[in-house]
Amino acid sequence: MTPKRRLLVLVVSVLLLAGLGTGFVLHAASRAADTNQARAGDPTVTAGGVGLDQRARIAFVNSAPGPHRTEVAAVPAAAPGAARTAAQLKCARFYAASGTGVCLQSGLGVVSQTNRAVVTDAALHTEHTFALAGTPSRARVSPSGHLVAWTVFVGGESYGAAFFSTRTSIVDTRTWQLQSNLEDFAITLNGSRYHAVDDNFWGVTFAADDDTFYATLGTGGHTYLMRGSVAHRTVVSVGVQNVECPSLSPDGTRIAFKKRILGGASLWHEYVLDLRTLKQTPLAEHRSVDDQAAWLDDRTVAYALPHEGDVKSTDLWSVPADGSGAARLLIRDASSPAAL
């Protein structure tokens, strides 16, 4: 092949690659535009400040189509259907209490996927970031704002999968001391010290004393409710099985959780456990809820369910915590609720 012909082939190849690249970019832009395209009845979302120290508001991750999708937003607790204000902080999972927020982020880096936990102040300014070992799953902040916890999937993508692996971490925001893996804590199960290669913890919820927490331990094909101590690095079984993603009530007496139902079409049902009597009360939500419920007050819990007709979005629903009433739509196109 002559030098002139080689040059011609090179030029044609470059032009073809450029055309393909442009096509891919335009296709991606078209898909993004479809994702952000507004729908009839979509909520009104405006850019603005979201203060975690504001009272009588609900913060959440906005999933309404548009430029503010996945941003932390807030609405008045008394008018959850009102126009929402969205900050610029984008999260896959979020929670907040007493002016401390935790935002779990998942995105594509130059070479691979990058996952991180961002701990924020009341104005959603970053105070500290931590690299995550996997895909974001659960996030919680203690009532005082001094302790932050998160769970990620290290292997698998769903709690409904036959095999999955999690890692749960706790950090003290006063010292930034990180407990990177609850599996390193001393485990007491049914009165005996316990350790197995399939130990998995997920779904931390904190008590008001800045030490006690509850979490799910999955091992040997079973799930157990565990009570832990951050200071002593211990976790002890409470005596109740089939408890996942616990959430402690504001008064510290009850735990909302999802219970795996073997029969019927649903996979998990929402229950409330009385910690004094261990009595379990089924809630009036009959759909399968794969979420860590959040208490709006001592009488009501909230959780996310897939938005009808849009698998990329969820809606927030609420239900009375005593088993009465019925589930009702709380906030459309939203997830990760936190009552401020």
Rank of each mutant, 00 (worst) to 15 (best):
G109C: 02
A32M: 14
R31K: 05
D210I: 02
A149W: 05
R39S: 08
Y224P: 01
P246W: 00
Q54G: 10
D298C: 12
V311M: 11
P80C: 08
P65F: 11
T253R: 13
Q113M: 14
D333T: 08
E183V: 14
G81R: 10
E157A: 15
T188N: 14
V243P: 06
S106I: 08
P76N: 09
Y159K: 10
G21E: 01
N181T: 06
L89T: 00
V12A: 06
A265G: 14
V319E: 09
A123F: 11
V110F: 12
V197G: 10
K259C: 04
L267I: 08
Y159S: 08
S137I: 07
T173C: 00
R276G: 09
A78G: 08
A97R: 06
L147M: 11
T126W: 11
E127D: 04
A265Y: 14
V9T: 09
A123G: 15
H125P: 03
P143V: 03
H27D: 08
R174W: 10
S247T: 11
D290G: 07
A321V: 01
M1E: 05
R84E: 10
T46A: 15
D322R: 03
S324T: 15
T22K: 06
H307R: 03
L225G: 02
A86C: 05
V152P: 02
I170P: 01
S98C: 00
F163E: 09
S192M: 13
R55T: 15
N115A: 10
V141Y: 01
D291E: 02
R55A: 15
S144N: 01
R140A: 06
S144R: 03
D251M: 01
L108K: 11
S106V: 10
H307E: 10
P67R: 15
Y271L: 02
G218Q: 12
V118H: 03
N200R: 15
L248I: 04
H195M: 06
L17R: 00
S165E: 14
S165A: 13
